[in-house]
Design a protein around this nucleic acid. Sequence first.
DNA 1: GCATGCCTACCTACTGATAGGTTGGTTGCC
DNA 2: GGCAACCAACCTATCAGTAGGTAGGCATGC
Lengths: 187, 187
Amino acid sequence: MNDTKTKILDVAEGLVQRVGLNAMSYQHVSDAVGVRKASIHHHFPKKENLVEALLERCHFSYGDNYQTIVDGAGSAPDKLRQLAAVFADGLQKQQLCLVGTISADLNTLSESSRQALEATIQETVNIFVIVFKQGQQEDSLSFSSLAEEAAYAFFSFLLGAQISARACGGEESFRNATEAIISSWEN
Amino acid sequence: MNDTKTKILDVAEGLVQRVGLNAMSYQHVSDAVGVRKASIHHHFPKKENLVEALLERCHFSYGDNYQTIVDGAGSAPDKLRQLAAVFADGLQKQQLCLVGTISADLNTLSESSRQALEATIQETVNIFVIVFKQGQQEDSLSFSSLAEEAAYAFFSFLLGAQISARACGGEESFRNATEAIISSWEN
DNA sequence: GCATGCCTACCTACTGATAGGTTGGTTGCC
DNA sequence: GGCAACCAACCTATCAGTAGGTAGGCATGC
């Protein structure tokens, strides 16, 4: 992969996570990368191309990140705490989960970006589901709903907690809230 | 309260909830209200004034809304479901909780707006806390964390679930996820 | 060996649209 | 008269996106 192109994606990703999609401009990216704005357009003609590239990359980087945790050793509650820790890391840098910020601007997205977003969310939740199924099998987690629903709920909680903790309460509130959720499922 | 001023706030609120703070412009508001852009500036000189007015109003309207539910008859789990239903109503209109959308754009806010936001979140969580304390007293809810932490977690979950459900899964996913969370606390 | 053609990466310079915000009024009510 | 509400016209900054061009790498054919 081209070096500049990767740098553009890195910078854009950080900006979107910090200030949101609509406050991230090609000029900001251009300044930070050190190439002219037209060069950003050379690599990503329209903003929606950039957004979709970000989502695709997220699917192959964050997805791997989650997958590693899920595939690792340890109990299901442990793995939920590790997944939450990924979100806590972002929070520390005042950054939201990419999927979360982009979802917040859903109604300003193109149709193709919306579809890319939906697919990324679905795949992320699918990875989370594995932990809840493990929890059922080893009897370390108890929940009356389906594993799919619990995984979706947990992912949603992490998105929301990151947003509210950044605005009010910070990392400590995030940790406490996470523990409040996980312990309610833990056996 | 002035009629036009109220109409401006109504329109702005809906826009922010639908497309987000940075995609809501004075021109959009002006078009929808039927007065000129300069008149919006007459009532709210800077955008941050509008934002703060929205948050204040939210504190006195949504806050009342929540308070009515909390003060009503019924068990604590029932009240949690009623609170969730308020968020489900917004979702149906493709609208996010005002506090949620504004929080997503936290890093583009002025300092005073940030403080107004923080206060609104804190007061909202404080209302939610009452339900969790009721749940402890009547033994209808069980959680190992503090009522404050559980309330914060529940509010965070609702924010996140609204965002993820709008992007992926819709109202049904929202309902299922809500049930997955509430039932884990329910006795 | 080298000229031709094509490609990628990047540039300067620009466009039209829109953003938030200001100035200097006019109108009508207390 | 004074004030609140409103307006047309304007400002500057910035947005996404485009036009047109340059420099260098790499292949082809002679």
